[in-house]
Every structure is written in structure tokens, then in C-alpha cells.
């Protein structure tokens, strides 16, 4: 099989032509670096995305704390992760890197805080 992809690993956003079969990626061209290979193989056989969003904070200097999945989760589960996180609330203070939801939806990825939120006042 053949197809066109945009590699999103870095902002260069290479336009890549790829060829693959049932089980493996056979070739790519027009990529400026070698990271594109892994990304495109992922896009074909197991597309994943890092989810970045925010979680409600009780008693914090901000009403929300930003979070991310520490590793990318299957693309098909992105909205399920959003649903899982919709009504989660944590208490301030929150530290950067703190685990908010471990192993979210059994994906093996922890949801972690990406900033500090201090107590209000």
C-alpha cells in the first residue's frame, strides 16, 4: 500500500510518501530526518496522540491546572480520556509532574500536571 503523510514530529512538517504491507513499513521518501520512520509506522499501525488538557483545581490560585498524558495514547481513545478527566478535581497545591490520574483508562499512560498551582491567597 502507498500513501502520503505529514510528519508531525517537529515543526518542519515533512510531506512524506510511504509504502507498506500488512505488517511493516517498507519505505518512505522526502523526510528530512530519521524520526519520520517511527512516526509514520505509528500512523499506519497504531496511531497515538498525547492528550493535553486541564483539570479543575479546588482552592488554587487558578481554577484549572494544565495536564498531559505522559506518553501518547491510542488516537481512538483521545475523547474517552477527555470524558474520564471531565469531572476530576484536585486540591491545591499541585506540583509540576505530579500524577493526577495513574494509567488512564488502562492505556499505561499517567496523566500528569504540567504546571504548579499554589494555594489561593
Amino acid at each position: 500500500m502507498k500513501g502520503k503523510f505529514v510528519c508531525v514530529v517537529c515543526p518542519t512538517s515533512c510531506d512524506v510518501n510511504a509504502e507498506w504491507n500488512e505488517t511493516e513499513l517498507l519505505s518512505i521518501d522526502h523526510a528530512q530526518c530519521k524520526l519520520a520512520w517511527e512516526f509514520i509506522r505509528g500512523e499506519i499501525f497504531d496511531p497515538r496522540r498525547t492528550v493535553t488538557t486541564s483539570i479543575m483545581v479546588d482552592g488554587g490560585e487558578l481554577p484549572l491546572v494544565s495536564v498531559k498524558t505522559r506518553t501518547p495514547v491510542p488516537k481512538a481513545q483521545v475523547l474517552a480520556v477527555m470524558d474520564r478527566l471531565a469531572d476530576v478535581m484536585v486540591r491545591a497545591p499541585v506540583d509540576i509532574g505530579e500524577v493526577i490520574v495513574p494509567d488512564v483508562l488502562g492505556t499505561g499512560s499517567d496523566v500528569v500536571a504540567t504546571r504548579k498551582v499554589k494555594h489561593k491567597g
Binding site: S54, P63, L64, M82, D83, A86, D87
Partner: peptide, 10 residues
């Protein structure tokens, strides 16, 4: 609020 939006159909 941002977090109320999900009650609308996603």
C-alpha cells in the same frame, strides 16, 4: 465554564 462544555454533544 470550560468544563461544562462537554455536557453538549461531543
Amino acid at each position: 465554564t470550560t468544563k461544562e462544555l462537554r455536557t453538549a454533544c461531543a
